[in-house]
Design a protein around this nucleic acid. Structure first.
Lengths: 166, 166
DNA sequence: TATTGTTATACTCTATAACTATA
DNA sequence: TATAGTTATAGAGTATAACAATA
């Protein structure tokens, strides 16, 4: 049996298919790139949230990104072991572990943000600024129309991996 | 600790983030919808390929969508048990199982394609045709510029699940 | 009783490698 | 020896539920 590529609609070009294809590709690419600073997307996401809400509890931060408490434990463990985040006692509630960035955490976050920018540039290379802007608006409109979560995507830890639906 | 929503950039609105967010959402939505005909995205993908390349071997079809042989076994098993696809002996090579759609397979494929259309309509509801066209062109341009696979996305089997990166 | 954080457990998905029957 | 298909196995990732300390 030849390996001769199968013609036809091996990859349909409908809008929905393209969205999935490009979106999942973008997530995977980012996953590989953010590994350069020792993170994976979920850790980067949590790190951003801790920065935006320092001193909040593990679970409060987890809720904001739709991550269950039991998973937050592991993620914060990782960030703590990497020396990027600290768990400190809450002043009045001894059950709570308040989260804070370390200096190293801030540096890493900054570097991660640079990586995110570079990722974005590469993704849209060869695209005029006006088009980039319109594309962003279209996507934002879809987000506004649909009910789209703010969570972390499971299974996007940056493995090799293939690509799509119909 | 209160559930008071954490303000700030809980969900950044960069282009790359939006692409991932919308793309993964689109894939998940499709995954849930295609379940109406008893399929999941990988099965629908294979079904489309069998239609486009009837009589080809399991592995030839698997290669076209970047699915390893061992996984094809399970997928074709499922399709066969659903009565959508048949494995027939190859006329000259007894190792090969040539794949064919059944009548029911054709019907299901047709229904699946209707679902895909409806999915697409809903995804872009409230968007003028001209905008939809431009959005498609932008995404196609990204596909052309990048090296994006034609495979099946792991972990998109349509579970509950949350959402994103940075 | 309710809640924060934790641990234990179990499940899904998938790839790698070993195996068989044919070539 | 090589290839098509299969099976066995092992790992990643994640959610659910039970648990301890504290409120």
């Amino acid at each position: 049996m030849g390996t001769d590529s199968i013609a036809g609609d091996a990859a349909p070009s409908t809008l929905a298919f393209l969205l999935s294809q490009v979106g999942i590709y973008a997530a995977r690419q980012f996953s590989e790139r953010i590994a350069d600073v020792g993170l994976h997307p979920a850790l980067f996401r949590v790190l951003n949230l801790v920065d935006a809400a320092e001193g909040r509890s593990q679970q409060a931060i987890g809720e904001a990104i739709e991550v269950p408490p039991s998973r937050m434990v592991g993620l914060v463990d990782e960030l703590e072991q990497l020396g990027l985040v600290e768990r400190r006692p809450h002043p009045t509630d001894r059950r709570v572990r308040a989260l804070y960035l370390t200096a190293k955490g801030r540096e890493t976050l900054e570097r991660g943000r640079e990586i995110a920018k570079a990722h974005e540039r590469d993704l849209t290379k060869g695209m005029p600024a006006a088009d980039r802007k319109r594309l962003t608006q279209y996507l934002q409109k879809i987000v506004d129309e649909q009910t789209i979560g703010r969570g972390i995507h499971p299974g996007m830890s940056g493995k090799p991996a293939p690509s799509q639906q119909g």
